[in-house]
């Protein structure tokens, strides 16, 4: 994700509104406008132009269907557009799919989540669209018991810059696969271990690899938060 369109999230001030449509299924339309200020390499979707007519806007359409009592299908589409520091129009769009199974009778012991998303970034120069970074991921997580989760994930980013490949200078392709296991002894804590391996290719013979092991310990303090679906 970060290789394709940069780190997630806007830094800039803005206004966002969401509307739950009256359609028979859950269909939520979100729209937002933001103040585009400052150039930030880590957040290319912030766009960069501070021209007063640069009002980056975002739209997201989320649809969720109950396939049965336990399984839901979610489809989403996102679009964002704004003017960059080069005065050209830049945009990005994405589509995501999630199939989630949470059996009601044992909601805290069983279940699985299959997710996939595709993102593409581009710009419009002189009326012509130029595709820039693009990529996607697919992941599968399964709950084995009340305390154990495991998952696999694969992702590929094309025409992207990456910190371990070419010092961020040359567009290339990065393919990463990872496996993870999580132990949740209580609702308020978990330990997660992940191994990932990435292969990069700049199209000119350089094919470095990157192996990572990550251990994560999380402990929640304070009020019992609601569990996001």
């Amino acid at each position: 994700m970060a290789n394709s369109i940069g780190e997630e999230g806007f830094k800039d001030a803005g206004l966002e509104a969401a509307w739950l449509t009256p359609l028979p299924w859950f269909a939520e339309l979100t729209g937002g406008v933001y103040q585009g200020i400052g150039v930030d390499d880590d957040h290319p979707l912030d766009f960069g132009s501070s021209r007063h007519d640069n009002v980056p806007f975002l739209g997201h359409f989320k649809n969720q269907f109950d396939l049965n009592d336990a399984t839901t299908l979610e489809l989403g589409q996102s679009f964002i557009q704004g003017r960059g520091s080069d005065a050209d129009l830049h945009n990005a769009f994405g589509a995501d799919l999630t199939i989630r199974n949470v059996p009601l009778k044992n909601a805290n012991r069983r279940g699985w989540i299959l997710m996939g998303e595709y993102l593409q970034k581009g710009s419009r120069v002189g009326g012509a669209y130029h595709q820039e970074q693009h990529g996607g991921y697919a992941s599968f997580q399964v709950r084995l018991s009340q305390v154990w989760w495991m998952g696999v994930r694969g992702e590929q980013a094309r025409d992207c810059t990456t910190d371990f490949l070419f010092d961020g200078a040359v567009p290339g392709k990065v393919t990463r696969g990872s496996v993870n296991v999580a132990w949740m002894p209580s609702e308020f804590s978990f330990v997660r271990l992940e191994y990932s391996r990435a292969n990069a290719d700049d199209g000119h013979g350089a094919k470095p690899t990157d192996d990572r092991i990550m251990a994560q310990l999380s402990y929640t303090i304070g009020y019992h938060p609601a569990h996001a679906y």
């Binding site: 939520e28 969720q64 109950d66 839901t72 009601l104 909601a107 679906y229």
Partner: peptide, 20 residues
């Protein structure tokens, strides 16, 4: 439903629709 743990109801968006 009576067969589900009232502590752990999945907060499905369809529940939001149901009480709209």
């Amino acid at each position: 439903p009576g067969y589900a743990d009232p502590h752990f109801v999945p907060a499905k968006p369809s529940l939001m629709n149901a009480i709209q």
